[in-house]
């Protein structure tokens, strides 16, 4: 563990730019190289060595942007070990990287985009209707609440990935993220129903509002795209209103 903290902080901030120059062929490889460059510069002062390592790490790379902290930490740790002579072979670093990037992307997708983002959205929607009537604070709450786990995973993941290298995986398993997701999902559904009920108490009865909600859920289950349903609602409402004038 010989990288100074300054380098790790630099890698942490650079990991936010992992999508900074994205390609179709190799996706995030350039952002990943940019994030790791302080490590390479520290370990390999000679440009030719850096070129070799850079070329080695320049292949296809794609993972969830938040999980990139863990991956970059692990790679930084393994490269440090390798440079100091106690490490794995170079191929093993790439194997570990490709073994980890897929599942971490799946985890990030299911947790962050699939569950946490909609949960924060519906949570802020409910709070906006009841407790926080201010738009500015709702936005701040939404962005802040969502980014708490993001920043935590990125920073702590980077740190632990660097310290424990591939041993970080058994520790990740302890988090049982997948166990948490259905509870968050059920909570989100309850909040959505609550929100539908509280919107409805304006012009239509709560029961009517909930029936509409379930109806729309049904159309989406049938496979209709949400934007099409929105357009259809507008079109059919106008048609209906126009039809009423004929009567």
């Amino acid at each position: 563990m010989t990288l100074p903290r300054r380098d790790l902080v630099r890698i942490f901030f650079r990991s936010f730019l992992i999508q900074g120059l994205w390609t179709v062929q190799r996706v995030q490889n350039l952002g990943y190289l940019y994030s790791l460059w302080p490590v390479f510069r520290r370990l390999y002062p000679k440009r030719e060595d850096r070129a070799y390592v850079g070329r080695f790490h320049a292949g296809y790379f794609s993972t969830h942007p938040y999980a990139s902290g863990i991956l970059i930490g692990v790679v930084a740790g393994l490269e440090t070990d390798l440079a100091e002579g106690r490490g794995p072979k170079r191929d093993a670093i790439l194997t570990a990287r490709s073994a980890m990037s897929g599942p971490l992307s799946a985890l990030g997708e299911s947790f962050f985009w699939g569950t946490w983002l909609p949960f924060c959205a519906v949570f802020c929607w409910v709070l906006n209707g009841s407790a926080i009537r201010s738009t500015g604070w709702t936005i701040v709450l939404f962005v802040g609440l969502f980014n708490l786990p993001h920043l935590w995973v990125r920073s702590v993941g980077l740190w632990l990935g660097y310290r424990w290298k591939t041993e970080v995986v058994p520790h990740l398993v302890l988090f049982r993220v997948q166990k948490m997701l259905p509870y968050l999902a059920v909570g989100g559904m309850a909040l959505a129903v609550w929100q539908a009920a509280s919107i409805a108490s304006g012009e239509m009865t709560v029961v009517q509002g909930l029936l509409w909600t379930v109806f729309f859920w049904g159309t989406l289950r049938l496979g209709v795209r949400p934007s099409f349903v929105a357009l259809a609602v507008a079109g059919l409402s106008m048609a209906f209103a126009w039809g009423k004038t004929l009567l």
């Binding site: 599942p103 799946a106 398993v173 997948q178 166990k179």
Partner: peptide, 12 residues
Amino acid sequence: LQTGLMRMAVPD
């Protein structure tokens, strides 16, 4: 490593 991670990445 990969097997453990794959088990962790799928839903319950």
